[in-house]
Simulated assay, not measured.
Amino acid sequence: MARRYDGRTTIFSPEGRLYQVEYAMEAISHAGMCIGILAEDGIVLAAEKKTTSKLLEQTHSNEKLYKLNDYMCVAVAGLTADANTLIHYCRNQAHGYSMSYNEPIPAEQLVQRMCDLKQGYTQYGGLRPFGVSFLYAGHDKHQGFQLYLSDPSGNYSGWKATCIGANTTNATALLKQDYVEGCSLKEAVSLAVKVLAKTMDSSSIGADKLEFATLSLGANGKVVYRPYTNADIEKLLNDENVKKIIEDKEKDA
């Protein structure tokens, strides 16, 4: 039945569904998981990398986490090519706002501009939705630290902790259980590691399969974006609780 209605983005099925948007959501559900956690003093973004190879130059390849400007970064799940196009658009919007008003664009306004573009691609014939979801971590003088999620339909929402990609049901349940409002950034990082360790499909977990980044305020009050190196991630994985989770998964495998 779907074949009669899924050829065009703009055609509704009898149930009121847009199949092309649902197909885009399905592509995202098979991507590596991304987690965002809002803390009192910052935000952590963590992601599972699907592409791992000893031949890949890790220092020059970002698969999941990207910096938009000095105040925002994103984690992506879905088609990387689509993500690159949207990230380029987002950076241009942020730069254009700064040039016009001589101040950084508010975080939610940048998210809204991105979502307006994404929604347009669900509205016109001859186009397809972008097959990517984003977690946005940002800071501005109006609302402080903020975490947003957007999907291919153009919807967005603010969160304290959330995830996108594969195994989101299990990860969301763990976040609901263990997230504490007002936690420190260090506690948020530890929670992100534990959730990834428990929910990743791979039985063996190493630094080459993960990406981490934090957004926090430095001593001078400026926003600091800090991507984690492999050595930093190895230190997180060497925590006793995390090592036990990984050992239990390897035994079950």
Rank of each mutant, 00 (worst) to 15 (best):
V189N: 09
V111H: 06
K160Q: 13
G131V: 05
V223M: 04
L127V: 12
D151L: 07
C163D: 07
E22A: 00
A24H: 00
G36I: 01
G7H: 14
G36H: 02
G206M: 07
G96Y: 11
V180H: 12
N62C: 08
P14I: 02
G165Q: 05
A188P: 09
L236K: 15
L38I: 00
Y101I: 03
K244F: 08
Q146K: 14
A173T: 15
S190V: 08
I35R: 00
G78D: 09
C115H: 09
E181L: 11
T9Q: 14
S133C: 01
G165D: 04
A2F: 13
G165V: 03
Y156S: 10
L65S: 03
A219W: 07
P14Y: 02
V44F: 02
R3I: 14
G126N: 05
G120K: 08
L210F: 04
V74Q: 03
A166T: 12
L185I: 12
L147R: 09
D82N: 12
E57P: 12
D232E: 10
E108Y: 03
I245R: 04
S184N: 13
N69D: 15
K222P: 04
L65K: 05
Y5C: 10
K54F: 15
N238M: 09
A137D: 00
N167F: 05
Q123F: 04
Y23H: 01
M1E: 13
P129R: 05
F12R: 09
A171K: 08
H30I: 02
S216C: 09
R8L: 13
S98G: 06
V193F: 02
L215W: 05
H88W: 05
D208R: 08
T9L: 08
G182A: 06
I246K: 06
F134W: 01
I246D: 04
L79D: 13
V76P: 03
V195G: 00
